[in-house]
Amino acid sequence: MEFHVNHPIIFLFSGILVAAVLVQSVWFLVRALRRAKELGMAGDRIKKLIISAATFTVAPAVAIVISVMTLSKDLGVALPWLRLSVVGSLSYETIAATNAVRETGGSFGSGIPLTASQFVTVALVMTLSIMVGIWLVPSVAKKMQKGMINMEKRDKKWSELFTAAMFIGMISAFVGFVFCNVSTVATGDFSGIIPVLVMAVSAVVMVLSGVLVKATGWRWVSEYALPVSLIAGMASAIPFTMWLG
């Protein structure tokens, strides 16, 4: 059988794996919804949670589609479709593919079609290099969760602070990242402050949503505040880039 990166068989194999991942998500969703019902968690609030999570996901998911398009120029569509539907990301897959193609004598991004052997090598490097989480989570998740429960039994206040500190620590890294290019201002290049302005717009929209909820009592506003702040921030990047980019 003659190989090419968009061969129907490769789509079939990718499709089988993507379908399995989809079934896993549906499985956990159904189990969690049943348990929510058993615990008496209000149905309408769960419905709003589902709508809010789905709305929030749309823009980042479209960005992932753009990543598939970017990688498809060298790898075809089927492999990036699979890789970005499972544990991958654009930066990781690009690094893995660049390393694998280079080591097989090619050059990623050159547009030269991959041979079947190169393609298999790239797929293996991509798969094996990021497997850690998938086997480590089943090994440690139960023990870690028991540890968290024991911590809460021993000291409830510290347990709550512990979780808050973890969230803050994660957020602090991303807030810091937003400032990583501001030093370019010193050289007369103001594009480095675009992410800072975008973050500020998103934060202001979130604050205004909170003020609106308090002033009017419209609790539904808070349910959509995060997706709206995300879209407002992204939209603001367009004029900011025209102005400063």
Partner: peptide, 9 residues
């Protein structure tokens, strides 16, 4: 600019 927009809110 997805990440700045995400972590602002």
């Amino acid at each position: 600019q997805i990440l700045p927009a995400l972590f602002g809110g």
